[in-house]
Design a protein around this nucleic acid. Structure first.
Lengths: 346, 346
DNA sequence: TTGTATGCGTTATCAT
DNA sequence: ATGATAACGCATACAA
């Protein structure tokens, strides 16, 4: 059939009705409330449907029923397991509720605002990652049209959001370093970059406060490998050497680790190190990376569930949903006590 | 506004027309062919649109124009960078063409066939990964409805497919080991599992043939870390020890590497090793992993482009699009010659 | 229990 | 250049 453009326009409800010898109303009823149609007709309609391979056209249903049966998801990009899990969790939860998910990647979009507007007229609900780059006003105008919710967002905006609890794990990691006697600690990453990084830094500071210590200024670098390398450059120049690093994510920590090793610095002996995200490589580097595992899939699934609820049941919204993380103690922090540490393999 | 369910149903074309003092036809023309409408009316319509925040309802456009302006993508899951890149590449290419993408994850779907059918009535084109688990007949029936294309698929099915060239890189890697004097080589992974693994194994065999050597049987294990560990168990028991392993992917290779190191086996001295996919961890383990980088984003982007073409221009289809991969020589294969090797950092 | 008829928000044809 | 108006495929109120 190469060369043809005919893609069997698909049978309509009229075709099914005719074939079954009933009206379209009966077919529609059979689809949505079979109990309403007499057994005999049920059979006839059923047969007609399978014979014709009928499947209702989504757009027509949407128009008539005023519901898209779809959720939109806007993420900045898909690099690393974090976003992959986010999308997977969202899609799975949406699928369980028979909702389609329309995905939009903000990265590289010349006109993200337009893409978002277009998305908003194709779905019933919208989940947006806070770091997509959409201006606050843009999110607000979207929220005015469809049920909207922000992932890893700032609860202060008033828009409902779902996020991981970041301060506590950071406090725990920092305390771990502090209680091991290390004092010259640094947080690596820019607290102003994202709400969750701000919280992680807050935990870093809180741990110091509990010890009656001041927290040094954060090392301001990008959240990727280049940032880790840059941080290494900076830190290796300092005297006396830093004793512990709480990194904003694993990418940063990994690159740092590599550079420190290359410089002959012992990790964790001389410098202890922690990451964030528990990416795959964290288990394979030496020393294995102590890090924090965010319940990303759960967060995304909760988001999809909340959106669905908002569409189906009448509940108040605007809340701030916070989900706790899990600290994974391995070797890089130099304080792994086998008793509470996490097994290397899932 | 918490508690309310009012999500401003959105202005309609009627509202815009009324506000601008023209008919809906003029508004529609303004949207699709502004040149047809007089300057004065253009202004009035434009104003009305921004004042009302009008955006055409997707479903209504779909119904009237008989086009969804959307592409569907079905992938088995999103674990690892491979699927992430696939989705990212597809979405980016679709977005450039103003097409939405509706994503379906096969993993965990109790009724994948139904999800696929539902997807097919919501999009104009469909890209399906070969390994989703959809039966051949299912794919065929989808292809009868919408433009369909298979990713990493078998060209023998007759359905258009886009895939990476797998045999050649495998042949190259194997030859590398062979030319270093290693003879007891094994392919790790099940060639029957997927079309591209079959091709990789074919390359492994071809390299042996060129040396007039028989290829040993592949080590049949799952394509994940558990498979790598299982393979290590098996291989460590063999005497004499294998000298080189061509693994079906990096996950496998990484887990194997770890187990071999734990057993005191020198890599690459005693056993040389290669992976496939060039995941992040491949650059961070020691020895750094020699592997193959697939142009996943390009493959996915090509798929989206092909689907779009099929919808817009009348071209013959049914082809088999093959894209070459890049071999990344690092340390684990024991034959890294700095001259042709790839830099460690992008 | 079933059929008829109307409306959903667009696009596009046909007059004007 | 513009305005009626008929599809598009389905859900549903209403009548029978």
């Amino acid at each position: 059939m190469a060369g043809s453009r005919a893609h069997g326009r698909g049978a309509t409800i009229y075709a099914v009705a005719e074939r079954a010898g009933v009206s379209i109303a009966t077919v529609s009823r059979y689809l949505h409330n079979p109990a309403q149609v007499r057994e005999a007709n049920r059979q006839r309609v059923q047969r007609a449907i399978v014979e014709l391979g009928y499947e209702p056209l989504g757009a027509a249903q949407t128009l008539a029923a005023r519901s898209h049966e779809a959720l939109g998801l806007i993420v900045p990009e898909i690099t690393g397991q974090y976003y992959a899990d986010l999308i997977a969790g969202f899609e799975a939860a949406a699928g369980e509720r028979d909702l389609s998910v329309v995905l939009v990647l903000a990265a590289g979009r010349s006109d993200l605002a337009r893409a978002a507007r277009r998305l908003a007229v194709r779905v019933d609900g919208l989940a947006i990652m806070a770091s997509t780059g959409l201006p606050r006003s843009g999110v607000d105008s979207l929220a005015a049209r469809v049920a909207t919710l922000v992932l890893a967002g700032d609860p202060a905006t008033g828009i409902e959001c779902v996020r991981a609890e970041s301060a506590e794990p950071a406090r725990e990691l920092t305390t771990r370093l502090l209680s091991a006697g290390r004092r010259r600690l640094r947080f690596v990453g820019d607290p102003a970059g994202a709400i969750d990084v701000r919280d992680r830094h807050a935990g870093f500071v809180a741990a110091h406060a509990a010890y009656g210590l001041p927290a040094a200024d954060p090392v301001l670098v990008p959240f990727d490998e280049s940032g880790g390398r840059a941080a290494a450059e900076l830190l290796l120049r300092e005297i006396p050497l830093t004793e512990g690093l709480v990194c904003a994510n694993d990418l940063l920590a990994l690159a740092l680790l590599e550079r420190l090793a290359a410089a002959g610095i012992g990790v964790p002996e001389e410098i202890a190190l922690t990451g964030w995200d528990d990416i795959l490589a964290a288990r394979y580097v030496r020393p294995r990376l102590t890090t924090v595992r965010q319940p990303v899939r759960e967060i995304a699934a909760l988001a999809a569930g909340l959106l669905h609820d908002r569409l189906t049941i009448d509940r108040p919204w605007g809340g701030d949903h916070v989900i706790p993380c899990e600290v994974i103690v391995r070797d890089s922090c130099g304080t792994s006590d086998p008793g509470t540490s996490h097994p290397a393999h899932h």
